[in-house]
Write a protein that binds this DNA or RNA. Sequence first.
DNA 1: GCCGTTTTCGGCCCGACTGTTTTCAGTCG
Length: 582
Amino acid sequence: MDNVEIARFFNEISDLLEIKGENPFRVRSYRNAALVIEGLTLSLESIVEKDEKSLEDIPGIGKSIHEKIVEIIRTNGCELHEELLKEVPQGVLELLKVSGIGPRKAGLLYKKLGIQGVGDLEAAAKGHKLRDLPGMGERSEEKILRAIEDYKTIKASSLRFKLSVAYPRARGYIEYLKKFKGVVQVEAAGSLRRWKETVGDVDILVTCREAAAVMEHFVKYPDVKEVVSKGETKATVVLKSGLQVDLRALEKKSFGAALQYFTGSKSHNIAVRDRAKKMGLKISEYGVFSGKTGEMVAGEKEEDVYRAVGLPWIAPELRENMGEIEAAERGDLPDLIELSDIKGDLHVHSTFSDGASTMEELAEAAMGMGYEYMAVTDHSKAVGIAHGLDEKRLEEVISGVEAVNRRLEKKGVGFRLIKGAEVDIRADGTLDFSEGALKKLDCVVGAVHSGFTMTMEDMTRRIIKTMETGYLNVLAHPTGRLIGMREPYEVDMERVMDAAKEYGVALELNSFPERLDLNDAHLRLAKDKGVMVAISTDAHHAGHLDYVIYGVHTARRGWIEKKNVLNARGLKELMRLLKRGC
DNA sequence: GCCGTTTTCGGCCCGACTGTTTTCAGTCG
């Protein structure tokens, strides 16, 4: 039983209790527990196995939820969850996914009209059955029908947007807003600023002379498909891509407080506010205020907001209430990796396999980024579809790399290509090149590309066996997941990391926005276990080298520091580590 | 249901917008 599945139970319990109109604080407890569980590094199963009582050391988990976690793991079910479903059918939960329908309305719709799903709701709205309900009218029916259309398209396209969709669109919107006269500051907040692997919507904050005019300008952006709402200080639109964008206009004196507030995460903010309350302060998006006098004590800068509650500024990527507030209090925040710390890329494909750029083009691009090196790592023969290399063609790659390096040396350029390959890890745990071929390479990147469905035990042994050969330098995309498309294969990541540590293998953080593999939680585990991380792009085109930005920020979410990153080392040190193991 | 340097009881983050209301509930972030 995965943590995500357990969290789903608590989320649903929370929804069901809310629909029933139960104590909102009890509702929040379950919701909060789900949030906490989703963010845990270790699996609840392993915690329960080792020391069940320690569950209650996790903030947000008390006696009752502790018992339910154990119940869910042992029985694959939860009695409370079942009992609630007898009163509120599963289909009613679906209603909550329609924007504008919350628990109160869902409950009302079910009780008064017996509506048990989005299909029922659509029929009722079209049949004008909703306008007679309390608090609803004609407009509500129209609004719900529009929301149902959105729900259908979002459902078809998966709920959240990958960073690679949201980030460039947000940049474009911000540029557009910056050009408008009277706009002073513009900044993206929300999960985008925290660099979550997917974002639900984009939040943009502005300070400006005339808020109403900026709102007007905002909704006229050419990429807007629909204006959801527009007020004096707040507006919401949906772009043609389906991405929702919110804009907030603020006064200069509140900008920092708003940035802090809208960056979240929700649970981070609740913890910060809780802390403020205990200090006799009140925090809102407008500032930090004295509880007694109401006097504003901070708000213009984000740093000031944290300082007001006795903390140093906390990087947005860390704001998940996963120990960052405690670390800040101790003065023990990590010194996070920066984009400028990256000295090269260790996973790149050229035209020798399935890449679109030549080795020379890739080297050019890498030098343009200020890199010291780049490993050319084309596929091995097992990946036939990608035109994988046999050992004869591998020789051509190697001599190609040597030729480029000779030319660079002649010109007095310090940059170097590294002889590498992305070697397939076969189902039996052997590598897809002979020992003789592997010995000619300086950077062997191993990867699983087939046989995803084996058991956890078999997959774990398969990967560890390749580490034991002593030839593997980097384990590429260690879980094989594709965000929103393919679940990770079953693998015991703790054992893989222990083996990586033992055999000096680095684990890749694949920066491709579909992958981001390792993820934030695994990265933190790697750091705790002292395993080195390689932040590579898996570029199949020179332009993909830029994806490193997604990797670096994901690494920051995993508390990764420069010292944890293999390719933050200079060329000499890197070659040494590749040779003798990390 | 969780939690505790005000507390083992009595709190629990805060405000804008919408659509329905004549003063507010529900939703959302």
